[in-house]
């Protein structure tokens, strides 16, 4: 975990209420896809926890949904502006369990961390299938970027505007996969938990105070005891999830 200043390189809208921000700064504390950063914003007491979409040496990419005043303020920021970030927060995905044909499932604002994960898995020679779930065609983002990584990509929309009509679980019925990784709204995670044929990992979201394990604000129950979503999560293994 590190606290440091990042500078915005670009910040643009990529779908309805969804923005992509790239920043330069010290990314050395980020060790696994699925981790998050906690962003200080002037005029707001608490930081905004945002999942890492991807990172490399000195460059961080985040994709965030505009859901309130904080993310609205972020969406208006421009290149050259600086932000203080806590980086390397959370456990992230364990890639050693993927097998050869992992299934990656992202729903809405849960899509971004799947990108950094997918890029690393394909670099290891794995052959992931990616299901990206959205509500409507206007919400869809990053389908082409995932394809460019060489992944087999399936898009679903609830209204059928693009891709498979329905939920992510409707697209996985015929699929064969070795393991699954997921991030998305809780109803999606629960449906996936029930529909999945293998073990896997699920990334959860909760209102956080600190984001680094101090306040116990985001604790949930698991089969292995109480866990702080920010520190012991956000990624939980399927076997430990209690609904």
């Amino acid at each position: 975990m590190k606290k440091s200043i990042f500078e915005i390189i670009e910040n643009r809208s990529i779908a309805k209420d969804v923005c992509l921000m790239r920043l330069t700064g010290d990314t050395s504390a980020i060790t696994a896809p699925g981790q998050f950063v906690n962003i200080e914003l002037e005029g707001f007491y608490l930081r905004r926890p945002i999942s890492v979409c991807d990172w490399e040496y000195g460059v961080l990419t985040i994709i965030y949904k505009v859901v309130g005043k904080g993310t609205e303020k972020m969406s208006a920021m421009t290149a050259g502006e600086k932000l203080e970030l806590l980086t390397g927060l959370g456990n992230g995905y364990d890639m050693t369990l993927s097998g050869e044909r992992p299934l990656l499932v992202g729903g809405g604002a849960g899509v971004p961390p799947m990108y950094g994960l997918c890029r690393r898995l394909t670099a290891q020679g794995k052959r992931p299938t990616v299901i990206l779930g959205f509500n409507t065609a206007a919400d869809v983002f990053f389908a082409e970027e995932f394809k460019a990584l060489g992944a087999n990509v399936i898009v679903t929309t609830v209204d059928g505007g693009v891709g498979v009509k329905g939920f992510v679980t409707d697209a996985m019925k015929e699929l064969e996969y070795s393991y699954f990784y997921s991030c998305g709204p809780e109803p999606m995670l629960k449906a996936l938990y029930n529909a999945s044929a293998t073990e896997g990992q699920l990334s959860f979201e909760e209102r956080m105070g600190c984001g680094f394990g101090a306040c116990m604000g985001c604790t949930c129950k698991t089969k292995y005891g109480n866990k702080r979503i920010c520190k012991d999560g956000p990624v939980l293994k399927k076997e430990e999830v209690v609904w």
Binding site: Y45, L46, E206, R207, M208, C215, M216, C218, T219
Partner: peptide
Amino acid sequence: FGNIQPRIAE
């Protein structure tokens, strides 16, 4: 265990 979620508000 403490209270049910959410436990934090700004």
